[in-house]
């Protein structure tokens, strides 16, 4: 049984605009899943189906094997936490602490547990020192962390991040990469995120879904996706710079093994250098 599964999911916006067209998507346990695609590909629309914000026009969404109904919607939203692209949409309380506590309160937890969850969520995202601050005094990156902490405090099994790197500086992106990896490694969570920053994907994803005009046009791991430059360019994306460079060197006769992450690429470059030295 998969944590989340969509079967032939189709969604049409008012005005007969197709948002999703026959999407089949699977989120297994303890996986890091990237959904990549250009603007308007349908990534956010897909995510809004995972916790019942949008209802399918046709097809189905199964969470732990069960369809989303009025009866289980609260449980589904506790199980699948969605972090929106713009933190100002999600942070609606006067202080950071109150905002992070909003979800646990709605779960009907007692005060001591709420306090513990808030402290823990703030610690996980590294913003304990911002507890008493007001959201409008925070930077974009800090607000993003507060939004994530607000979801983490509900202890979901699946964390869905819509364009998590949008508006972050390079250090913010590095922190986020470490954070996503730690959620999967330390807490066994499944993390699903969307991006059109393909260079980020090899560092944080085991499974990649490529979307274009509401359809999933490809799925697989880095090897299966990033070795298809024609496919990526046809959906207005590109191959990340490291595999692109290695591929170009290989085409020019350099004996080097393909790599996708910085650490792997460094290793392969050094190995190639030693072979040729």
């Amino acid at each position: 049984m998969h944590l989340i599964e969509t079967r032939n999911l189709t969604y049409t916006y008012p005005g007969n605009v197709t948002g999703l067209d026959g999407v089949n998507f699977i989120a297994p346990r303890n996986a890091r899943i990237a959904v990549i695609g250009a603007n308007g590909a349908g990534k956010s629309t897909l995510f809004k189906h995972f916790n019942g914000i949008f209802k399918p026009t046709s097809g189905s969404v199964l969470v732990r094997g069960e369809p989303i109904t009025r009866e289980n919607i609260r449980e589904v939203r506790r199980f699948v936490g969605v972090v929106f692209q713009n933190p100002d949409d999600q942070i609606f309380s006067p202080t950071v602490e109150q905002d992070v506590a909003f979800g646990p309160i709605n779960l009907g937890l007692d005060e001591e547990t709420i306090h513990h969850r808030v402290e823990e969520a703030l610690r996980v995202v590294g913003i304990e020192h911002l507890k008493d601050r007001v959201p409008h005094h925070l930077s974009g990156g800090e607000k993003k962390r507060v939004a994530i902490a607000g979801i983490i405090a509900m202890e979901p099994q699946v964390l869905v991040l819509d364009e998590p790197t949008a508006g972050l500086d390079p250090q913010g992106v590095r922190d986020l990469v470490g954070f996503i990896n730690s959620l999967s490694r330390n807490y066994g969570m499944t993390v699903i995120f969307s991006t059109h920053d393909v260079s980020l994907v090899p560092e944080v994803a085991d499974i990649i879904y490529v979307m274009h005009r509401g359809r999933v046009v490809a799925e697989g791991d880095c090897d299966e996706i990033f070795t298809r430059p024609d496919l990526l360019s046809s959906v207005r994306l590109d191959v990340p710079v490291l595999p692109k460079l290695i591929s170009s060197l290989r085409d020019q006769g350099v004996d080097i093994t393909m790599a996708y992450t910085f650490t792997e690429a460094e290793k392969q470059f050094l190995a190639a250098y030693r072979r040729n030295a």
Binding site: E97, F102, G108
Partner: peptide
């Protein structure tokens, strides 16, 4: 539009009749 998006975000975090602001002792 902000109101719509915020309400959606509230629903995602289990907003309901029992929702209230967290005020520490």
């Amino acid at each position: 539009e902000q109101g719509e998006r915020t309400y959606t975000a509230m629903l995602c975090r289990g907003y309901g009749r029992e929702s209230h602001l967290y005020i520490r002792k």
